[in-house]
Design a binder for these strands. Sequence first.
DNA 1: CGTACTTTTGAATCGCATCAAATCTGGTGG
DNA 2: CCACCAGATTTGATGCGATTCAAAAGTACG
Lengths: 215, 215
Amino acid sequence: MIAYDLNHMESQAIPPAKSATKDLANAIPADLRAQACDVELEAGEALFRIGGKVRNAYLVLSGEVRLVRIGLGGAEITLQRSRGGFIAEASLESKAYHCDAIASAPSKLLAFPAEAFKAALASDPAFCREWQSILAREVRKLRAQCERLGLRSAEERIRHYIESEGVDGAVELAMTKKAWATDLGLTHEALYRALKRMADDGSLRSVGSRMALSR
Amino acid sequence: MIAYDLNHMESQAIPPAKSATKDLANAIPADLRAQACDVELEAGEALFRIGGKVRNAYLVLSGEVRLVRIGLGGAEITLQRSRGGFIAEASLESKAYHCDAIASAPSKLLAFPAEAFKAALASDPAFCREWQSILAREVRKLRAQCERLGLRSAEERIRHYIESEGVDGAVELAMTKKAWATDLGLTHEALYRALKRMADDGSLRSVGSRMALSR
DNA sequence: CGTACTTTTGAATCGCATCAAATCTGGTGG
DNA sequence: CCACCAGATTTGATGCGATTCAAAAGTACG
């Protein structure tokens, strides 16, 4: 039994699924949906372990699940973190898992039998198209995220986020600023300060959770 | 006509396609492959422009192509950067492009007619599966990359890279260290210094382009 | 054998992380 | 309704590590 770093555990329940997750659930054919099981995990509990046989496709409904591998020095390496949406879908093709999946907060998920999932993909052209579309959207979002994290300053990342996720230089944040900071690869302090600087010099107007760039 | 930031232009030709790109090309059915056109771009040249009709799926063989949007203040926002592999594949579903595609180095690509591409996906189950598998791999790679860029120190990113991209705590780098630094979201100086520190304290052994973690 | 680029090292600076602590806010139970 | 609590939001002080600017040495290739 491996002890996981408790720094990554959220002490409190994480808000319910985002709307996007609901869309995902709707994309699933009824007959496949009927075969899904509910899974509930406590913080720190494992969904699967490295070497385990791939039996299911998992959809995270709420909470947070991380894919983790233990490195040489015993340090843990997070490969993916899901707070809604599919997790480890790339493992569907493998026989066995190449990492551990650990809930870092109390989480609810849906488990679809892997065989049924693959069969549905093969036999249901609409689902197949939908699945490709889901993957393609995910790829686009992740690429933008990588570009953003490659930027050096807090302000550049904020601008990039608003310009790429928002419309016309404005976004309605769907999360707390603290969570946003994590998404941007910043500490919350750095984010607050950068926002203040931008508000002060007039390049950003912020009302509640709506952020709009100026000029 | 929009002038693009020349800082992002590579003055020199970028090495030929990685082996992964070759695999991609092989995944494409012969009849689709036969319909592909070669495209060559000079540095700074546009592959397509925002608002343009989506006519093709593009595979970058060599060089570098960036998807770029111009923000409010005239600053450019890079959404994706491809140095091999498909680019803008998420746009296949759209009618028109929502960003510009600019070569930042002399580049060669293949253009597949979008209709033929989609038809092949629909009619060729093997290609459809292969395409899903390509997307899933891409998703996995990008998620690992995002996790890596979220790490705060150069050393952590190096460890993460080696542990997640390599085998048994060792990788054979397929690029120059300078290019690696960009992948890691670091300046090349920061990478060289971090590598030296790690070599000095014995946590990394490096022979040529092979990097191995110790302990 | 010269040119272009990578690799390496140095010095100075700046921005972000870190540690601390005070307020604010929404939700809970008495 | 109010007291209370857990997080979120802010602000401050400090230090470290990465960026930046510079320049030298190494290397591949025509």
